Simulated assay, not measured.
Amino acid sequence: MMWIQIIGHLLAGCIGLSLGLLGGGGSVLALPILVYVMGISPKTAIAMTLVIVGTVSLIGTIPHWRKGNVNLKKALIFGSATMLGAFCGAKIAHLPFITETLQLSLFGVMMLVAAILMIRKGSLSSPEKKEDTELYPPPICQYCWLWLITEGLAIGILTGLVGVGGGFAIVPALVLLGNTPMKEAIGTSLLIITLNSLAGFLGYLGTVPLNWGLMASFTVVAAFGTFFGAYLSQYIEGKQLQKGFGYFLIAVATFILVQQP
């Protein structure tokens, strides 16, 4: 129905708006919107979510790239592991015992984790602060590449399985294990999420039916929402909204988990 299409695309705009305002978290809304509003089957919705998340993350990388806050070396090292994991995760999703119910339940749990971290981040941030450099402790070691690659594989597998970008885990990994400054970690994580999403989508391509038109329109609307959110961020302190958005994510995650048989 037309009104469902309108509501769905308005919500897609909210995905981008939250990303532009808060710098993260909004992409986890793509899957529940596609499944519970647009009526897309979960496996197809996960594949479509990967395209939406990947494209919006790529757009978000551009301003960070211009400011010199993207570390290509670390993106390629960490990203190669996450891409392998994402592709494998997408293939694992086709195994008989990986049901859509299991995928949605796992997604709900990941959404809860992301929400809790967002609430914690909002609690540690004050309105005067622009960067949350105190969110994570000092780096554990100078270059823990083995741990970085291992975590990259795990994050990638989750990306392929449930369609989450994994930024809530990638940023602290880059800071703690890659000795990466916070600004650089945020910009680099967006490029890594783009690579993850591409690899995960390739793992689903040809195995699930895709609504290319809906995927394209959602991506365009979310992208415009991101630009609008970035514009509003000049006037609205996103950190003040972070805790509230985190609690909203908890409510959505709870709804998803309750819906599973």
Rank of each mutant, 00 (worst) to 15 (best):
S105M: 12
L102K: 04
K67R: 14
G68M: 05
K91P: 05
K73W: 09
C88N: 05
F78I: 07
L104Q: 10
K74L: 14
L72F: 15
Q103G: 06
E100A: 09
P63C: 06
G85P: 07
T82S: 05
P63T: 11
T101E: 15
K74G: 10
V109P: 06
L76T: 13
K91R: 14
E100Y: 00
G79T: 07
I92F: 00
T99W: 00
K74H: 14
A93L: 07
A86H: 04
L95G: 08
M83L: 05
L106I: 07
G108R: 01
G85M: 02
S105N: 14
A90R: 00
S105R: 09
M83A: 04
E100G: 10
L106G: 03
K67N: 14
L84V: 14
C88S: 11
T101N: 15
N71M: 03
I62W: 12
A75C: 01
I92M: 02
A86I: 03
L76K: 08
N71R: 04
M83C: 04
F107R: 10
T82R: 00
N71I: 03
A93C: 03
L104V: 12
V109N: 02
I77P: 09
I92T: 00
G108M: 00
K91V: 11
I62S: 08
A90V: 00
M83D: 01
K74V: 13
G108E: 02
I77G: 10
K91N: 09
I92A: 01
F107P: 11
S80H: 06
F87P: 01
I98N: 05
K73E: 11
G79E: 03
T61Q: 01
H94T: 11
L102I: 13
F78N: 01
I62G: 10
I62K: 09
S80Q: 02
N71V: 01
V70E: 06
H64K: 08
L106V: 03
T61F: 00
G108F: 02
H64S: 13
G108V: 05
R66T: 09
V70R: 04
G79P: 08
L102D: 04
Q103A: 10
N69L: 15
T101C: 15
R66A: 08
A75S: 07
L72C: 13
T99C: 06
I77F: 12
I92Q: 00
L72P: 08
A90G: 04
K67E: 15
H94Q: 15
I92S: 02
L76P: 05
K73V: 12
F78T: 07
S105L: 13
T82V: 05
T101S: 15
I92V: 06
